[in-house]
Amino acid sequence: MNVAAATQKIGLDVPVMVAFGCIIVILLAGSLYSPEFLSLDYLLQQLQVGAFLGIIASGAMMVILLGHIDLSIPWTVTLGAMMATALGGWIGPAGVWLAIPFGVLCGAFIGVLNGLGVAYLRLPSMIFTLGMNAVVQGLMVLHTGGFAPQDHATDAMHFLAVKRSILGIPNALFVWLFVGLIVIFLLRRTAFGRAVYAIGNRESVAYLSGINTNAVLIGCFAFCGACAAFAGVLLAGYSTKAYQAMGDPYLLPAIAAVVLGGTNILGGRGNYLGTIAGVILITLLQSILSVMQMPEAGRQVIYGSVIIGMLLLYGRGARTRS
């Protein structure tokens, strides 16, 4: 097998290679500032932090591949965290075991509602998920009584999010690996995955080809909601409790990570390797800017400029022609 075919097979196309190239450039630039940036310990810590973003981005990618977008991610993250931590208080000791599945299930439920709105009401996903985000926010404000709740994360959440069980590798990384493998399997080995790409390219054609497009839409939104809630559960484990608006800083980085990884924001094109690269890129960028004690103002400007700059390198659309 020649090199081109091999890279094609694992999805190493131009955007992905540019993204990985940028990761190396960032690390080298960082190491000029401090050799710490190339230490194994620092890299593992970044991957642990990046795992939360990675899980959210996995779900966001499934929806973006359809040509849709999920703006309800921020409060679905918070919902997952709050429901999982609150369950113990509601049903007693059994809640310890059910906490994580319950949180994920709540997120999936919101995702199904999003999917129903987009599939059957045919509302633009951008506006429907936006409304859903406001509704979930309202529910969570009501749930906590307007204050940060005192519910604490269970040991299992803490174990998954913070502990390092095998060879000093953070458990969160294994969780991301697990979610990532599910996405790769779905996209590459199942009819569902082919349907996702088909709908992203042209939904009417997918429909005429006999694909149950509405079921695929609902499935992807449910997966996205579940991923967001799962990340919320882990974040609650990471910071030992759930609090209001904990998901707000994750929406834009998740979308940016997916798009920087070469997934077309209009759907139909993209692979998971790119999303991994995008997540690591965003995480490293955020980390290095904060280590360099760049003020927030400069961070935002650099953050936005890097996204524009990278997309100008490889994300340009076609010219309008006859």
């Binding site: 103002a297 400029s305 524009i308």
Partner: peptide, 26 residues
Amino acid sequence: IVVWGRLQPIITTLATGAIFYGIALW
């Protein structure tokens, strides 16, 4: 950026939004 850079408006304005906000903060 949208016309000459041929990037998608959503992602372009998401990124420029961060830049404008950064300048406001500055």
